[in-house]
Design a protein around this nucleic acid. Structure first.
Lengths: 265, 265
DNA sequence: CGGGTGTTTGAATGGCGTCAAAGATTGTGG
DNA sequence: CCACAATCTTTGACGCCATTCAAACACCCG
């Protein structure tokens, strides 16, 4: 199953809401965005998100599914540099940024719309769309901020902190786009993806997650992340090096797997 | 603490050369930069580079010495996010970037000049200074590119690759500003700084460097880095995970310390 | 010359990766 | 709708890369 996908008509409602949260759009701006015509493209999980024959790539909005910017290290390892969720814009208009040089890969089945024409119109007459321009800039800003936190995580934190920090980020981002119901949200990633994000092996990601579940902090069941103890999770992410007793402790964790009934909405 | 004093336009020759390498400056542009009046400030090693009462900080050019952008992790560890060398610009004019939010700290004694007035004049009339505008943008671009490589290093490479990659970056950057003589260049950093950069302990940084010296790849003697085998260093940085036999091998390395005569110019 | 800072080294511990294999889940074709 | 394949998860055993602790050694500065 894939995540609930908005139908074509309101596929950019999410973007409008996000922009609106950063700078209130004028009715004219909202009208403009809502009445444009958007081309949809779909990618299978694992596919490179890229417009053929188009270099550099055209500004694109993620409608449903998740993707990442990735870089293959010279040693063959895969590093996921940043995560992209619905409502995120991939190749911003205007000046090229280094991050735009990285390959974008679909982590789940993915639907995007081309917003190249829209952004062209906007940058050609920015005075007409002040809040849109500002909001798009803020979205870029937020992604680069996440990147900086990522550097700190990778460079100076042990496994459990990295994972805790990652899930706090995911939680907040999912909530900001309205994808959290209760304390749960769908994350269409495998443990390998988590590992490639925070620089840990699959096996060790699993060990950390098992620990979190045993401590009632966080739980993942078939792609549904449930934050059981938000404060506890934050405490782990921000604990000093010696505070949190390291992994071994819990040795065995028998899984009494209850029947699942949650839908992936 | 910083000491402000007027200073000759000579200190920005390095910046002019760097900009010129990216887009040839017109005589008028060169003239403009060279005849401006610049205020110099100095910081002691370890001091925060910051203009008192000024928030956000004013665009600033590093004249001599090294600095870094750093972030203290919640767990108390220090992560150096990016290195700043002479000729680098710290707080770009115009839009604020997330990286500008990080604290800048002098790693050695540092001399900078304030270029706020200059950048203001330039951004107010960009058509008059096309190559300067472009060149400054390229400098920003380069720093963000280094940041991405840093993410890959921290997230997916073992110790010796991180260190090798770091010194390749240092070598190229030092060369690009004309600070390399022969195969040597001065790096005013301690092993602790290296560790905080690439996410390793002091002790392990030392072990890796000892190994590099024993293998005739790279040598550091009182702050002078000597690249003994550039190709070998690149091979280490790009080797696949299994290629390079890991550390232990060389156990003992007696130091026969020869007299040094290099100056730190 | 003495104190502070940085370097160097050893020993011991452990966090995390690798290897391997058995469940569990998802997807696919008949 | 079921059987089968592929993918993902889970677990144990094992070993090494890297950290921590601790202490000696070298260097710089006033």
């Amino acid at each position: 199953m894939s995540i609930a996908s908005p139908c074509s008509g309101d596929s950019i409602n999410l973007l409008i809401r996000r922009l609106n949260a950063r700078a209130t759009l004028s009715p004219a701006e909202r009208e403009f965005l809502a009445t444009q015509h958007y081309y949809t493209r779909s990618y299978a999980a694992g596919a490179a998100v890229r417009v053929e024959d188009e270099r550099p790539n055209r500004p694109t909005l993620i409608v449903s599914g998740w993707a990442c910017r990735e870089q293959i290290s010279p040693n063959g390892r895969r590093q996921l540099v940043s995560l992209l969720m619905p409502g995120d814009v991939i190749w911003a208009a205007g000046e090229r940024r280094p991050i735009d040089l990285l390959e974008v890969v679909a982590l789940s089945n993915l639907k995007v719309v081309d917003i190249a024409d829209v952004t062209r119109a906007i940058t050609k007459d920015p005075a007409r769309f002040p809040s849109i321009v500002f909001g798009l800039g803020q979205l870029q800003f937020a992604e680069e901020l996440n990147l900086l936190e990522h550097v700190v995580r990778l460079g100076s934190q042990p496994a459990h902190q990295r994972v805790a920090g990652l899930f706090i980020e995911l939680y907040e981002r999912a909530r900001s786009i309205g994808f959290v119901t209760g304390r749960s949200f769908v994350v269409p990633l495998t443990q390998e993806h988590f590992g490639n994000l925070v620089g840990l092996s699959i096996v060790h990601i699993h060990r950390v997650l098992r620990r979190f579940k045993a401590e009632g902090v966080l739980q993942i069941r078939s792609g549904l992340v449930e934050i059981l103890d938000e404060a506890g999770l934050a405490r782990i992410a921000e604990s000093s090096m010696t505070d949190y007793p390291c992994l071994p402790a819990i040795t065995r964790q028998r899984v009494d797997r209850p029947a699942l009934e949650m839908s992936a909405g």
